[in-house]
């Protein structure tokens, strides 16, 4: 594989970064545009609406605060997983990666609980413009969390075999998975005040 795609574990002489990292950042750039379009839609819908509820009147701020802390913690465990590989400690990496996945699942369970509560009270995306954009933004973000769980679980279990043969490449993969995961955290850092507090 390394003969097919060059500079995946060593920096490219021109760019100074691995192609894997540059590719990941380009992917994240496209993600900025995806969420940017939805944030733009949110601003337009809110400024255009005759009345708009404060998020705290309809949504649970304590649950979302808890989830924010969960996601921030998972970002730390993710970067610690990468740091463990940089210190050549695979078992520590597995522990931190395991924690990251558990925290991500906790986030999804809490989000599911929030959704369930809304559906019980017959609040659906079709109920109002606020709920439409709320479900769209948090739903898309939730799918990103789920995607992160799948990728990270792969890197925890079968994917970690690469460590034995290509440790540098594996560390690079975890750094890229980390970049994605921190981006998911970053999006939530903005979603939380915009949807729940304002």
């Amino acid at each position: 594989m390394s003969s097919l795609i060059r500079y995946i574990s060593r920096p490219h002489p021109i760019t100074g970064v691995t192609n894997a990292k540059l590719g990941t950042w380009c992917f994240l750039a496209s993600e900025v545009m995806l969420f940017g379009a939805l944030f733009s839609a949110y601003i337009l819908l809110r400024t255009g609406a005759s009345s708009w509820p404060r998020g705290s009147e309809l949504l649970s701020v304590p649950l979302a605060t808890f989830n924010t802390l969960v996601l921030i913690t998972s970002s730390v465990t993710m970067v610690m997983a990468w740091a463990s590989l940089m210190m050549k400690d695979l078992s520590k990496y597995k522990r931190y990666m395991g924690f990251t996945i558990l925290l991500a699942l906790t986030f999804l369970v809490v989000k599911g609980f929030e959704y369930g509560h809304k559906f019980e009270h017959h609040h659906f995306p079709s109920t109002s413009t606020f709920y439409a954009i709320y479900f769209t933004l948090t739903g898309l973000h939730g799918l990103h969390v789920l995607g992160g769980v799948i990728v990270n679980t792969y890197f925890l279990l079968p994917g970690s075999k690469l460590w034995e043969t290509e440790p540098e490449q594996f560390t690079g993969r975890i750094e890229c998975a980390g970049l994605y995961w921190h981006f998911v955290d970053l999006v939530w850092i903005f979603l939380f005040p915009v949807l729940y507090l304002l």
């Binding site: 100074g16 970064v17 540059l22 950042w25 970067v79 980390g178 921190h182």
Partner: peptide, 11 residues
Amino acid sequence: FMHLISEKKII
């Protein structure tokens, strides 16, 4: 966390 503080110019 994303190491931008010490990242290369191209990023």
